[in-house]
């Protein structure tokens, strides 16, 4: 039983998730290939939408990986490769949304919410501290008279 389990564990360890990327697509230059993999991870597969072209097994993703490698081989910078696909597929091809006026709310919204919450807490905290500083207000003469009246033994 023991050896069988060990063999099973070994086999499972070998069962890496099926990769979409086919090693035959790789460029011969390792430095260029590393850049290609990095760029592919930032680009959205238009068909599967929530996968990068590096992860996706879709046919279109394969074509886009080929384009990335062709552009890099042609001497494009990383930014030029991204711009090349962005011109054709729009901002949607970028998994990380670009910083521009339309996306400011997206980028800074969480910070605004955090600031608003911190401001609210600060105001609440100051108000709570302000009350004990003033101390209890002493009873007026009228209130004292009424209290004496209510608590007087009959």
């Amino acid at each position: 039983m023991r050896p069988a389990l060990a063999i099973l564990a070994l086999l499972l360890a070998l069962a890496a998730p099926a990769a979409a990327f086919d090693p035959r697509e790789a460029l011969p230059d390792p430095a260029l290939e590393t850049r290609a993999r990095g760029l592919s991870a930032q680009l959205r597969c238009l068909v599967c939408q929530n996968q990068s072209i590096d992860d996706s097994a879709a046919d279109l993703a394969k074509d886009m990986r080929r384009v990335v490698r062709e552009r890099l081989t042609a001497g494009d910078s990383d930014g030029q490769v991204i711009a090349y696909l962005q011109q054709r597929y729009g901002d949607f091809v970028l998994l990380k949304p670009p910083m521009k006026p339309e996306t400011w709310l997206l980028w800074f919204g969480p910070l605004l919410v955090l600031l608003a919450a911190a401001g609210g807490l600060w105001i609440a905290w100051r108000r709570r501290r302000a009350v004990p500083a003033a101390g209890p207000v002493p009873l007026s003469a009228e209130e004292r008279r009424r209290l004496a009246e209510l608590t007087a033994d009959r």
Partner: peptide, 13 residues
């Protein structure tokens, strides 16, 4: 055949 023009047009299907 190899989607070269398609990518230039931004075709995704």
């Amino acid at each position: 055949r190899d989607n070269r023009a398609g990518i230039d047009w931004g075709v995704y299907g």
